[in-house]
Design a protein around this nucleic acid. Structure first.
Length: 438
RNA sequence: GGUCCUGUGGUGUAGUGGUUAACAUGCCAGUCUGUCACACUGGAGAUCGCGGGUUCAAUUCCCGUCGGGACCGCCA
């Protein structure tokens, strides 16, 4: 049997078909019964008159519970007077394929108050049954597809770097340790070193979409201990601006794809259009950005060499007003805020950038230092032992193109794109300091 | 890791030092001429997170504990 998606049902009027899905609502009246059935794409009404001929089905429906799954065969009719999509399905046979318990641990109806978030995460499989949550993962699929299309058109190679590491990878974050046949190994907190290795391998341009692990005891809406990172690395760049050009192009493709594919559904569910994306995003050097926030908003961040949450929000607010852009690049971060492998410019600032989206940092990128002597010197200055990164330094001994790249937090992007309050809402199954189940 | 907040039927909330803990929704039963967030009537459902203390009396006040959240720090 080929599953018919309910969104396509208007092609099947007056035909004998089989439909299957979850029971969304049951309205059992004196002379007629209605079942609203739902699948991932839409809902449809099944109508059964109460009469001797239908007795078997009538009895079945009276025992049916919401959220059970059913299959029904019958005929679909065009019925303009039915409010739900102007159609109804008249069955000749209904099969209950599984029965749901009567009461659900969470309320999945859109029009009532949302259940407690923890309870929803405990019962994520039920939480995800709503059309709004389904749209998030449809959006994620399309976003990844758009990015892949962009990369393939630009000669990128997809890599799958290991997540079990003998030495800790470097992104400035804490790492998880685990037992590996009696030895201590680490979970990858970034594919950083390996995507650079691909540059040394002559792959020219690479990308990876994969999990990364961070042992940070962070209790915020923007952090998870495991999340999906989109990483790219490209060779033969002149500066970090070439990397930003790539990210700009990628984001444009992505937003345009989302707009063309789910723009209507998004507008219906969120009462708002997807914002247009500008072909070019504002690029503002770190200290200039600080200055704007200080002069315009009279806000003085506590961190001299980094940007705090409030500053991120104000910078985004400023450029949204000035240019209409949801995206803003902050460039030339001071060396104090950056890892050892970022390349420095003549003035001692890093050739690096962050990308902010709707007030949140979604990317860090840079031109990498590919000259081994300078790389070693910078590592030592950051307090790293050269032995610990020996395997990494090897990549630079036998010729390597100038290169750079970025890591893009897919869930952070989706969180803001879908206007959710937490990264947990856009993660299939969230992992955090206090959550490793289900 | 720091600061602050929170825990009451299945779910979401209200409320109180003192008789039967309220409301909405959900659930069950019945009624109902096609509903469409169906409607109406009735019913079941809560040792008020857990432990201790104060008190004649604690769901309420205090302490501890466990769970949870928000913001900050760290980062994507």
């Amino acid at each position: 049997m080929k599953k018919l998606y309910f969104k396509d049902l208007n092609q099947y009027f007056n035909q004998k078909i089989e439909i299957c899905g979850f029971v969304d609502k049951i309205r059992d009246l004196q002379y007629v019964q209605f079942i609203v059935v739902r699948d991932s794409s839409a809902k449809v009404q099944i109508t059964i008159e109460k009469n001797p001929e239908n007795k078997a089905m009538n009895d079945l429906v009276s025992t049916l519970t919401k959220e059970s799954t059913i299959k029904a065969s019958g005929t679909l009719y065009d019925r303009p007077n039915v409010k739900l999509r102007g159609m109804e399905f008249i069955p000749t046979r209904i099969e209950i394929t599984s029965v749901s318990l009567e009461e659900l641990p969470i309320d999945i109806n859109d029009y009532t108050k949302e259940s407690n978030k923890e309870l929803r995460l405990d019962n994520r499989f039920l939480d995800l049954r709503t059309e709004k949550n389904y749209l998030i993962f449809k959006g994620q699929t399309l976003a990844e597809m758009a990015m892949r299309e962009h990369w393939i058109a630009n000669n990128f190679i997809e890599i799958h770097s290991p997540k079990i590491l003998g030495t800790a990878s470097e992104s400035g974050a804490e790492v998880f340790k685990l037992d590996y046949f009696g030895k201590t190994v680490y979970l990858a907190q970034s594919p950083q070193f390996y995507k650079q290795m691909a540059m040394a391998a002559g792959f020219n341009n690479v990308f990876e979409i994969g999990p990364v692990f961070r042992a940070e005891n962070s209790h915020t809406a923007f952090h998870a201990t495991e999340f999906t990172s989109v990483d790219i690395e490209i060779s033969w760049i002149d500066s970090h601006h070439d990397v930003m050009d790539q990210e700009e192009a990628m984001c444009n493709k992505m937003i345009q794809k989302l707009k063309s594919s789910i723009g209507e559904e998004y507008a219906r569910m969120y009462n708002k259009e997807i914002n247009d994306v500008l072909p070019k995003f504002p690029r503002i050097p770190f200290f200039d950005a600080k200055k704007i926030v200080q002069e315009k908003y009279k806000y003085f961040g506590e961190k001299e060499f980094d940007i705090d949450r409030r500053e991120e929000e104000l910078i985004c607010m400023h450029f949204k007003k000035e240019t209409g852009s949801d995206f803003v690049f902050i460039t030339e971060y001071p060396v104090q805020a950056r890892p050892f492998y970022h390349m420095l410019d003549e003035s001692g600032l890093t050739k690096s950038f962050d990308l902010l989206y709707q007030g949140v940092e979604i990317t860090t990128g840079a031109q990498r230092e590919h000259r081994i002597d300078i790389l070693k010197k910078q590592a030592v200055e950051k307090g790293l032992s050269l032995e610990s990164i020996d395997f990494y330094l090897n990549f630079f001994k036998y010729g390597v193109p100038p290169h750079g790249g970025f890591g893009f937090g897919l869930t952070r992007f989706l969180m803001k794109f879908f206007q959710t309050e937490s990264i947990r809402d856009v993660t299939f199954l969230y992992r955090g300091p206090n959550r490793v189940n289900p």
